[in-house]
Design a protein around this nucleic acid. Structure first.
Length: 494
DNA sequence: CGAACAATAT
DNA sequence: TATATTGTTC
């Protein structure tokens, strides 16, 4: 019948339901389908259902003639009014049994509802079994008032329309039941909401980048992505929704990247001034560039053996700790944040400068990295010493003209980043690539351009190293004043 | 019309 | 918040 199993199963021996009839219920929900189902369920219980889709209207009705209702069931997420406010007014101010309805039944929400005067809660979709129990709240309320208790049974006759509905059981009533049953069934059989596991997200990112490379970033649209992902779990809507969020994330990160690099310029300027006073030969530590605490975010890069090495002026300690761990896609692990992809670059449009920049982004095939670094702490990786955690990080990583941002879109206009020419006197090509005319750093300090690069120690997932590669050679204190500059410049957060 | 996209709902 | 749904535009 209405519900499967013991939900309905009316006792054939007794015509009467096992609860009082004629309970006058005001049901409030802006979702008409939901409301329809609820109304049908209420009628099924031989209650008198009054429904409205507006919380304000419900309140008006209650204020006008509160005595017309025994109980109120209301959604707590009504658009025209704070649902909890309605609970409060009805449950606390009016001292009326009010039951909250919500799609979520987490303890926090329920407790909030109870605090706001709810006697009980119904989780959507509401089922007959749930509705059958609501009369108890009226009994509880009137437990010291037997007169009112007795009234419940009588009330049904005061509502001829209800009796009418009852009489039509065989015809229209049946129809309504069927519809309601149908709706309820649809509601319950709804596909469970998709969770974008890491595995799924990586797949998405791969396809996104693939299409981006082949056809351009704006050709990566839901339908194409869906087709290429070829995953039965997904619908176009799923992909569209995820893509929307993904693009937003890229956009946000893009802005941050630009802002961050602006900061870098300032920092570089500060440092280049400061360095004038430092003794020679001096090697200045640069940090491992990253987006602050978001380095986890770059898991997707690893899949491509490309790792962005953006400069991060602070939080180096955290970054280093995290970068020792190469995140890998884990099957069906929930994807808690929006991982962003490696820069997308076309094969044929990369200028030398772009390539330089990308090199800086450690665009190194993993196969080239293995055994490519020494565990000897004297082995320098210019520009990538970890240094002590309090060391200032000096960036040379401002992308040159024509650089791409994270979405593979060239950096233009206000996001365009310029080289910061270093003072001539600071150019020391014999020292591991610090001032080689530009603010770009070569991995091997020899102006490497042939495509083979040294590996950053942390780049190697197999590395056993705890990763203290300290190539600065003067005490922290010497730069403490610079540190202060950087500490007022926290890394961007998502 | 269907798809993409943005906005909004849950 | 993450995902779903809706509304508008293309």
């Amino acid at each position: 019948m209405f519900e499967s199993g013991n939900d309905v199963a009316p006792n054939p021996a007794s015509e009467k339901p096992q609860f009082p009839e004629g309970l006058r219920v005001l049901a409030v929900d802006d979702n008409v389908v939901c409301l329809k189902v609820i109304a049908a369920l209420l009628i099924k219980c031989r209650f008198v259902a009054t429904v409205t889709t507006k919380a304000t209207e419900a309140l008006e009705m209650l204020r006008k003639n509160k005595e017309s209702y025994d109980i109120v069931i209301t959604d707590v997420e009504m658009p025209d009014m704070n649902g909890f406010k309605l609970l409060e007014i009805v449950g606390l101010e009016m001292d009326m049994p009010v039951i909250m309805m919500s799609a979520s039944d987490d303890t926090k929400t329920v407790m909030k509802g109870i605090k706001h005067g709810a006697r009980d809660y119904l989780t959507k979709p509401v089922r007959l079994a749930d509705v059958k129990t609501i009369w108890k709240h009226v009994i509880k309320k009137n437990v010291h008032d037997p007169l009112k208790l007795g009234n419940i049974e009588e009330k049904k006759d005061e509502h001829p329309e209800h009796s009418k509905a009852k009489k039509q059981r065989g015809t229209k009533g049946k129809e309504e039941e069927t519809n309601a049953q149908c709706d309820a069934a649809t509601y319950r059989n709804k596909k469970p909401r998709l969770i974008w596991s890491k595995e799924l997200h990586y797949k998405f990112v791969d396809v996104f980048q693939q299409i981006g490379r082949e056809q351009g970033i704006d050709k990566a649209v839901p339908k194409k992505i869906l087709e290429r992902m070829n995953d039965p779990r997904l619908t176009r809507e799923n992909v569209a929704s995820h893509l929307q969020k993904f693009r937003n994330t890229l956009k946000r990160e893009g802005v941050k990247l630009a802002k961050m690099n602006e900061d870098n310029e300032k920092n570089n300027a500060v440092l280049s001034k400061a360095i004038v006073h430092l003794p020679n030969p001096t090697t200045v530590s640069t940090g491992i560039p990253s987006f602050g605490t978001q380095s986890q975010t770059f898991g997707a890069f690893r899949a491509n053996n490309r790792r962005p090495l953006y400069y991060n002026p602070a939080n180096q300690h955290n970054i280093l700790l995290q970068q020792n761990v190469i995140p890998r896609p884990v099957a069906d692990q929930k994807c808690s944040n929006m991982h962003i992809p490696a820069p997308i670059f076309s094969q044929n449009s990369c200028s030398e400068t772009e390539l330089d920049w990308m090199r800086f982004h450690s665009n190194i095939p993993r196969t080239n990295m293995v055994n490519n670094h020494s565990t000897d702490s004297t082995s320098h990786f210019p520009g990538f010493s970890t240094g002590p955690t309090t060391m200032p990080n000096v960036s040379y990583s401002c992308p040159p003209s024509g650089a791409f941002n994270l979405a593979g879109v060239p950096l233009h206009g206000s996001t365009q980043l310029n080289h910061i020419p270093q003072p001539e006197s600071q150019v020391q090509s014999s020292t591991y690539g610090q001032y080689e005319g530009t603010n770009l750093v070569n991995f091997n300090g020899r102006g490497e351009t042939n495509g083979h690069f040294l590996q950053h120690p942390f780049e190697n997932p197999e590395s056993e190293s705890s990763g203290v590669y300290n190539n600065y050679n003067y005490p922290d204190d010497d730069l403490s004043y610079i540190i202060r500059q950087f500490s007022s410049n926290p890394p961007p957060r998502l």
